[in-house]
Amino acid sequence: MNRNEIIKEVREFVAERLFRGNVPSDFTNDTALISSRLLDSIVVLGLIGHLEETLNIEFEAHEVSVDNLDTINKTADFISQKLAK
């Protein structure tokens, strides 16, 4: 799976859970999701479960962090690196 596909996967999940499909035009792949608290803990929990399942990866405890998952771009970068290992 390449970076663009990962971005699409994350973006679709966030768009559905946060905006019920109607994504505002000022929402970008660099919008802060966790540090801004836009995604609450239950949604983050769902996101992690969803990514683990669809991308067949496993997050370690220390990997679930704001640094790795705060924006769609950061998440995609992190997962690309993880998959490359």
Partner: peptide, 22 residues
């Protein structure tokens, strides 16, 4: 009104669990 701006504003007032779904 941008929903993103509105959500960000509300997060300055309320805990995240109180935000509306839509």
């Amino acid at each position: 009104i941008s929903e993103l701006q509105l959500r960000t504003y509300m997060l300055g007032k309320l805990p995240s669990y109180m935000l509306p779904d839509s």
